[in-house]
Design a protein around this nucleic acid. Structure first.
Lengths: 234, 234
DNA sequence: CGCTCATTTGAGGAACTTCAAGGTCAGTGG
DNA sequence: CCACTGACCTTGAAGTTCCTCAAATGAGCG
């Protein structure tokens, strides 16, 4: 189950899908309860969102932040000529929707997803009163910034290298299992990497030929050499 | 002169190059003075940094945030094979160096520059006590995030379009003058856009031929059609 | 099974890079 | 003042990577 980690004590999204503080004997138990209540008050959902459906549109007012409980969310921009660029994928446990006033990217479900809506203004005013929340939010933004910077570094590499790095990253974020069950469509991945699906497919074929991975079925891959996958230079 | 804007009252970097609050008749003048003192206490510099010199290395501990007083700073990553990718340029008035614990990119002066060093821990603890500072910092990070996302959008476009968008952005950030005096080298720009200097040069030649800009001398350009520059589709 | 949608593969062409050569400009020393 | 130098930018031609278009194959589902 996904965690929303506000500092030392993680605030878990429990089985009833509400944000809850784990009950612990703690010196400041009362504070803990207050924080829990405050967090409950500002959240809505989790909302089930079907694959492909829009959560917020490019240009909408930034009234909410979002938290992925399950599934995958993508941020993207669609141009008039039909081109689409995906800026990021958000996996379970990740907070997204950081922006000033207006969203500059659309947010859409890349798979069926459960998403928590967090009222932005309430979360920010809570952060002003609670430094644990404040530091969590700051670290969430710097994390996303770092991830976005790595995405830029990706974009200046060769196609094969981009694909390998993407798969390695996904593999790590999903827990380094023997198999990598790619949750989003190849079109989504291609748009994220600035490639066509054909080039993406050919890159995967190449990597299969060189023994890094094997196709199992559909989008399920067998990771044969995860290290080499993450350290591909060409 | 560059401003470091902490909320409604901008804290200007004055002629003596210290962060100062403009003296104003205000209801909470005492608070203002305390904030000014606190900001003075956590800053060091401004330090003069020569073109090409490193401010912090990829991997260094993130002890400081930085503020550009004058000149241009670049964030970049250099690979063993000699490839270099530039993640961002920071212009006067911009705060940079956001990251968790360690810097993931090197920060270097792209031109001779004056840079203010701000002790990270002190600034963060100040933010915990002063919500005006906190909201300024949060907005600084979301701004940088947004800028970085736009950079990604750039990278999935055609070369000419990337160059045009870069020049248009630079032109706006530098105040939309008749002339655009490009401060950084073409190699830097190429590395920022994921292109070679040759492709960059050819793109500029094309844009000159189509009447958007003219070369004046060195890196000085005459902007003939700023609107078209920012809205180039191909 | 037969449908649809997503992925794979192939062939040809466009965009970008590489390599090589020439040009411009500012600083330096005669 | 002028030639010399080195760093930086521009241009051309050839080569590589990636995209486009077209067709085949595979997976999921009623």
């Amino acid at each position: 189950m996904a965690n929303l980690d506000f500092g030392t004590t993680p605030l878990v999204v429990a089985n009833d899908n509400k944000i809850l503080s784990p009950v612990r004997a703690s010196a400041n138990f009362a504070d803990e309860v207050r924080l829990t209540r405050a967090l409950s008050a500002l959240q809505r959902g989790p909302v089930h969102i079907y694959r492909g459906k829009v959560i917020v549109c490019d240009g909408d007012a930034a009234n909410y932040l979002f938290f992925v409980v399950s599934g995958v969310v993508r941020s993207c921009k669609v141009y008039k000529n039909g081109d689409r660029i995906i800026g990021a994928f958000y996996l379970p446990g990740e907070l997204f929707g950081w922006t000033d006033r207006k969203h500059s990217l659309s947010l859409e479900a890349a798979t069926d997803a459960l998403v928590l809506f967090l009222k932005r203004s309430a979360l920010l005013s809570l952060a002003c009163r609670n430094s644990r929340v404040a530091s969590t939010l700051l670290s969430a933004t710097t994390n996303e910034l770092q991830r976005t910077q790595e995405h830029i570094m990706l974009m200046s590499k060769m196609a094969k290298c981009r694909v390998a790095a993407f798969l390695a990253d996904l593999w790590m974020r999903l827990g380094k299992g023997e198999y990598l069950d790619v949750p989003m469509s190849y079109q989504d991945i291609a748009d994220y990497l600035g490639l066509t699906i054909e080039t993406l497919s050919r890159s995967i074929t190449d990597m299969e030929r060189s023994g890094l991975i094997s196709r199992v079925s559909g989008r399920k891959l067998l990771v044969r050499n995860g290290f080499a996958l993450g350290h591909m230079r060409n």
